[in-house]
Design a protein around this nucleic acid. Structure first.
Lengths: 213, 213
DNA sequence: GGCGCCGAAATTGTCGACAATCGCGCTAGC
DNA sequence: GCTAGCGCGATTGTCGACAATTTCGGCGCC
């Protein structure tokens, strides 16, 4: 536990800890002791405590009463549950995005489509980044705060499994056409198809997770 | 703000405040001042504070930094968003329930089906209670903790609008057949139909909410 | 030699006090 | 009479200390 930040104010503390968890700086199931974190980040224990409380509500840390907090480990079964939920929610967002998208949005997606196809064959880091950008833009265009806020939480929880999958050999070749299909459905302003393609894509992710364990 | 409970321990405080909010004891947009609540419930301000923090994470109270907490008012547009999300999630649960249901579960649902049809024509309170029970049983049978925990949060937020709608004249006559259709799909062990019927039902609720405002 | 009880260390939960911030009314100046 | 700036009351944010709880190790007893 390296004290990378000597003094951190409380407002940032939640973010700092969240980043540390999702980036894997803290190992799953690692205990998060309030006094230690307090010393490491130079904040008072009360500040650490509220930060842990928020992260507990986000599902990133487990908090057992009187027994402290630890980094929540997401088992495979739950990662799949999360993806099942995302099928419903991202399907909804894709459908809304197909309704809302503007002409300039369509142009933007056309460029994204080309870039994704290119990167999927050459640069997996870039490909992964573009996929995230696609997802983010779909959510922005969907204009559905309720769904988006839930998705954001779920994404943080599943990030470890997602990451593992992203660089699995041959995965990009499968997922790239699925992303393209989603883009095409949205730019055609076809909500039902956008939803179906999104669900199909996430279904394929579930399949992949199941097989590679 | 009547101090109905002279001394309340912190563990219960979150629950007490949550119940007070969803039951309408606190008006929407009402300010929740830490010192006042502390005095009213006989707990320390720190305990009140953590309770408010949790309720904030649940979306039941708005917390603006340095400006305190207030009961979150859910506008109609957001109530509809919540129902749209529930379409995805309850559809998923219904689908899983159709896969998981046992023989004894089928028998239980058959009885529930009859009771719902009866109550829908005579006793709206009982009808509303049975509907809630049906929803709860579907969630239990679905065995999908991730979806269920999200649904529980959303239900608490939307409860006011739901309640208003439940006793709208003629509403029961519309919703009862929809509930029956959901039951029939689940007891037929037909996941796709269970999902479709559930989504149709919630779609009908959205329609109703839109028209009665 | 193993099992259960007691006690100490570690850790979380709670409290009251102090500091920081925000909103509002009041005054002064034009 | 109106506006800008100041200061005060109200409320939240932060802190350190104390109390309560759990966990782990040692000791005695069977």
């Amino acid at each position: 536990m390296t004290a990378v930040t000597p003094t951190a104010t409380r407002a940032d503390l939640t973010k700092i800890l969240r980043d540390a968890i999702v980036s894997g700086e803290f190992a799953p199931n690692q205990r998060l002791i309030e006094a230690d974190l307090s010393a490491a980040y130079g904040a008072s224990r009360a500040s650490v405590r509220t930060a842990l409380l928020e992260l507990g509500a986000e599902g990133l840390v487990d908090r057992e009463p009187n027994r402290g907090s630890r980094v929540r480990a997401i088992p495979l079964a739950e990662a799949i549950e999360i993806l099942e939920v995302r099928m419903g929610l991202e399907g909804l967002c894709a459908s809304k995005a197909a309704e809302n998208i503007t002409e300039s949005g369509i142009a933007e997606f056309a460029k994204l489509r080309a870039d994704i196809l290119t990167a999927s064959e050459s640069d997996l880091f870039e490909y992964s980044r573009l996929n995230q950008q696609l997802d983010r833009r779909i959510r922005e265009i969907a204009e559905h705060p309720t769904a988006v806020s839930i998705l954001e939480r779920l994404r943080a929880q599943g990030v470890r499994h997602q990451f593992r999958l992203a660089f699995y050999p041959g995965r990009a070749a499968v997922s790239a056409p699925e992303h393209v299909a989603i883009i095409d459905a949205i730019t055609s302003r076809d909500p039902a198809r956008a939803e179906a393609e999104t669900r199909a894509h996430l279904g394929s992710v579930i399949q992949a997770l199941r097989t590679i364990g």
